[in-house]
């Protein structure tokens, strides 16, 4: 039950604003994907098109080989939970769960109840009367218990306190291992969740700036620190994401393949090579002033 996702030359516009700019990528499915991007980078638009909440202006999206838009056979396999949950006004928590059980072929009512207990959701209260965090918990409960082959969480943690967020991550991981499926999480809390991701996609201004296995991506980022002239010599020809200088010491963040030979030379020249965390890499890759390629 692993549903792949193919995105080809996808473009989406809001009036004059291009939200997604000729975007292409392919996910084999059955993994946990991290979708990272700054506000307005197009994450939500992308997820909305995959979930068929809106149509593409150009290009094509295929979920398990089929177009989702106005195609019920596909959309019942896809679940997108947005930041505030997808909740009908005036509905009580128990109504939301009941409605989901009617529409969702893989719905697990027992699991939904267990999650609702875990988050201490008040079943008889209106969702609109709940706190932001509790509303997020309703969304997460629906998203998890739907057990959709393609499950997407778009910043579905807002207002949740740290213990509840970690309970969500643990639950996501546990349930994913029991029932592997395609999970896409968009988040700004990169440090918290980066280790859950098998692959990471980074969007910037509607374009894909990185898509790779998390480990591979991290290995392509590197901080280079040492005497300014040696650092400059080492980094020439590499993509420089950022640099800082203090006196004669320079620290440069680079992105690209660096072979063992070059590493050895760096060590010999007194240049220290260090890793870059996903959050830092993300910041540098999506920094408006940084080089794009």
């Amino acid at each position: 039950m692993t549903h792949g996702i193919d995105v080809r030359n996808l473009t989406a516009r809001f009036g004059d604003v291009v939200a997604l700019d000729n975007l292409s990528f392919s996910l084999t499915g059955g993994k946990i994907y991290g979708l990272l991007g700054r506000n307005g980078s197009g994450k939500t638009t992308l997820l909305s098109i995959i979930a068929a909440f809106r149509a593409a202006d150009d290009g094509i999206v295929l979920v398990d080989g089929r177009e989702p838009f106005e195609n019920g056979r596909v959309t019942e396999q896809v679940c997108l939970i947005r930041e505030a949950g997808n909740v009908v006004d005036g509905a009580k928590v128990q109504d939301v769960l009941k409605m989901s059980s009617n529409f969702r072929p893989h719905w697990d009512a027992e699991y939904a109840e267990r999650l609702a207990d875990m988050f201490e959701l008040p079943m008889k209260k209106k969702v609109s009367s709940l706190s932001r965090g509790q509303q997020s918990a309703v969304g997460i409960t629906v998203g998890m218990a739907t057990r959709a082959p393609v499950t997407m969480f778009d910043e579905s943690y807002l207002g949740l306190d740290a213990p509840s967020r970690y309970a969500f991550y643990d639950e996501l991981l546990r349930d994913y291992m029991e029932q592997p499926r395609t999970i896409i999480m968009s988040t700004h809390l990169i440090e918290e969740v980066s280790r859950l991701f098998e692959e990471v996609l980074i969007l910037d201004q509607g374009r894909l700036v990185a898509h790779d296995e998390t480990d591979t991506l991290l290995r392509r980022g590197m901080s280079v620190t040492g005497p300014a002239s040696s650092v400059d010599e080492f980094t020439s020809g590499l993509t420089v994401l950022n640099h800082q200088q203090l006196g004669g010491t320079k620290s440069t963040t680079v992105f690209g393949q660096i072979d063992e030979d070059k590493r050895a030379k760096a060590r010999a020249a007194g240049v220290e090579l260090g890793p870059v965390g996903l959050q830092d890499l993300f910041i540098h890759l999506t920094n408006g002033g940084g080089e794009q390629r």
Binding site: Y169, D170, L173, Y176, M177, R195, L196, F197, E198, D215
Partner: peptide, 17 residues
């Protein structure tokens, strides 16, 4: 690998690697 992944809160593919 699954126990390891759950315990350390990491992706099971990473643990498997």
């Amino acid at each position: 690998t699954n126990q390891y992944a759950a315990f350390y809160r990491i992706n099971p593919a990473t643990a498997a690697k």
